[in-house]
Design a protein around this nucleic acid. Sequence first.
RNA 1: GGGCGCGUAGCUCAGCGGGAGAGCACCACGUUGACAUCGUGGGGGUCACAGGUUCGAUCCCUGUCGCGCCCACCA
Length: 888
Amino acid sequence: MLDTTFDHAKAEARLYEAWERSGAFRPKDDPAAEPYCIMIPPPNVTGTLHMGHALNNTLQDVLVRFERMRGKAVLWQVGTDHAGIATQMVVERQLAQGGMNLSRRDLGREEFLKRVWAWKEQSGGQISNQLRRLGASCDWSRERFTMDEGLSAAVRTVFVGLYNAGLLYRDKRLVNWDPHFETAISDLEVENIEVQGSMWRIAYPLADGSGEVIVATTRPETMLGDLAVGVHPKDERYAHLVGRMVRLPLVGREIPIIADEYFDPDKGTGCVKITPAHDFNDFKVGRRHGLGLLNIFDSRARLNEHAPAAYRGLDRYAARTRILAELEAQGLLRGEDRQTMTQPHGDRSGVVIEPWLTDQWYVDAQTLAARAIAAVETGDTIFVPKNWEKTYFEWLRNIEPWCVSRQLWWGHRIPAWYAPDGSVFVAHSLAEAQAGARAKFGADVALVQDEDVLDTWFSSGLWPFSTLGWPQETPEYHRFYPTSVLVTGFDIIFFWVARMMMLGLQFTDKVPFSTVYIHALVRDERGQKMSKSKGNVIDPLELIDAYGADALRFTLASMAAQGRDIKLARQRVEGYRNFGTKLWNAARFTQMNECTLWDAFDPADVKETVNRWIVSEAVTAARAVSAGLEALRFNEAAGAIYDFTWGVYCDWYLELIKPILNGDDEAAKAETRRTAAWTLDQILKVLHPFMPFVTEELWGRLSEFGPARKRLLINEPWPVYPDSLLHPDAASEIDWVIRLISEVRSTRAEMNVPAGAKIPLLLVGADPESGLRLERYQAEIDRLARLEYSTTASEAPPGAVVIAFEAASIALPIADVIDIASERTRLEKEYKRLAADIGKIEAKLANPEFLKRAPEEVVAEQHERLADTQATRAKVGAALARLDTISG
RNA sequence: GGGCGCGUAGCUCAGCGGGAGAGCACCACGUUGACAUCGUGGGGGUCACAGGUUCGAUCCCUGUCGCGCCCACCA
């Protein structure tokens, strides 16, 4: 016999192990089965499970379990990402805190990488174990890591392929430079943050001493690298100065005043300093005007040897302070305005990004984007919800070259080798590069490999096919690529989704997935993105410990509606834990009532109305769940099974069958027991994708007194029912009973009928069925609503209030009504409201346009509604009349 | 500056042109042989505001206000 609650803490690990041992997580080996594949967005190998992971993987697991039960050969490809900067950052911090205050350079590349691998080995299992805690049924036997040999080979193949196709090149230009990590980063890794800053006005004297111009800048320290001053050609204030020279303060260099349409007369003073090596716009202007480049920063944004001696070695902000002081002293600082401005920050380091001139590798993203755009335009890949396509298009249509090299050590080393003369050989291996060099030089030359590694997202972008063995033609690749659905958050549409589309199409000629499901972000209470660096993370594991994985999963699935961020409420998780308990106790009830399974049971054979009704309802609910999941409407699917389980099966069915189970009709009793057990089984199956643990446990435990289960629930086929199991007649009859009981209950409560007292009921209805139904359901109705009834008017107690229920009437002993005045007020209010409702409906039904244009079923519905409302009003009116009789 | 989204019950949110919903919270009653992690009943909403389209608008369109996010080279 079951206990009164499900002990999730004890059961979850055991059940998970049983699933894994059964082989359920691996795709079934049936060539006839339709393949279904989801690629996990690989979490950082050294990361921990946060709420975003919990949501993301819950949704994937719901789909995967659903499709597996539907008989498909399901592969949920799992693995982790090496997460270049993030991981290197963690290990560097460990080093720095290790007592010796070591930097990675102190260790050297080889030793440092050993440490990173050691850290990966040590902490890499954590995220996997946490996914297991969540119940994720991914195929661990195929777990991959972006720096596995196979995936690394794919990276090299793609790099060489892009290079040979002319889609990848080395270029010297300004990049976003992170002075903390001392590496280039891509545009996407830059966060523009609004900060309070200043704009200073600085006088630059004309070289001939005949005057000065005032430039405005937010970055005075870069003036040491100024190569010109710019004005708009039509700006009358400065027209006469164009072509003349100014003497750069503190430096003494003479630089020209140039004119360019780019300069905005309305901004600042209309006169701007040009620093081509330290500003993206100035770089372009400088190139147009042949100004050259003067780099004044080193890799840590300290002033270098190109700055005047007094400033060399200073940090950029220290230099700023000193420069402002010196300008002030010389009387050249002409003002400071406080203002808000956006400043670029490294998304990992948090420091201000410096535009810096370096050699980097770039991918020609614009060319690759064309197919990625077309594939979504033609519907080869669709986004759900669809509006994300706009975001995707917008970004791809304005895409800039993708800087893929990073001056880090942790990652895929760039497969490019340099000869002493600087010529480059991009190849799959050193040997291949050497062969290339030999062909070029006619002799062996010493080659040095590029020191840099690739952007983490370069390898992530290959994930859908590299994990399947590409570039080798593996059976898995042929079977599961392109994949079915990608489930991810909108925050990585650019980082990841777009890159997979571009690289997938380029190298496989196929879209990597046919559907992209974009879910909301789980945010903190202020609507901010949860992230480890902000420290505002809610720990899903703590919720799992407290309420069980099922409760957390169900919460997330039911909140995965489109269009709103998720702010997680703890009480909601608790509510769904209670749902699990409710289900558990329903199962306990069936056990106590010997509702054992019967192998030969056929739901088509049931005779009792209440049983035909629940079969019909179960079919309807299961279909709603299927439809919801097919449409990726997780909240609707979850809602459908929740409502059926609690609101229909527990609240009504189990209550209505109690009289049968306690009665003498053995045939009805046997049928009801079997139906109750069968229906519960349907609930377990349909609920399983959402709440795998409690359903699996019950699936096992419920066979204690019946036939043994053939297999674990996770391996059960998803229920599909014929339409013949739908019974509208039974549905309408039980619906009548439910409404009668609800009505009586409500009346009892409102009229303060004492709990023990029974309500005399008088039937005077025109519906000849009413009496029969009442007779038929007497036991149930009496039990649930506690009423007595009579079928003739003469038996009604004298002085009773008559309240109509549909065609029947209920007579109540008025003596039990405590406050006639307040009851009267209430009824009058109700009476008026109903009159208004009736007016509205009648007006609608009298409107010829409505009758002409509205669909037939809508008109019929309104007629029904009118009749219902009128009947209710008559009932209330009668009650009012009786009140008058009594009190008057 | 451009784009996306959101404003529905005290709170967290569903609602996909035709009678305003759920969970929690609140109030009352209930310990009835599955379940107090429960049951029954109840109170509570000009669906942000203003126009428009429609026979009919919480839902579609436009505008306004408030909030959030993304993108962007605003000296």
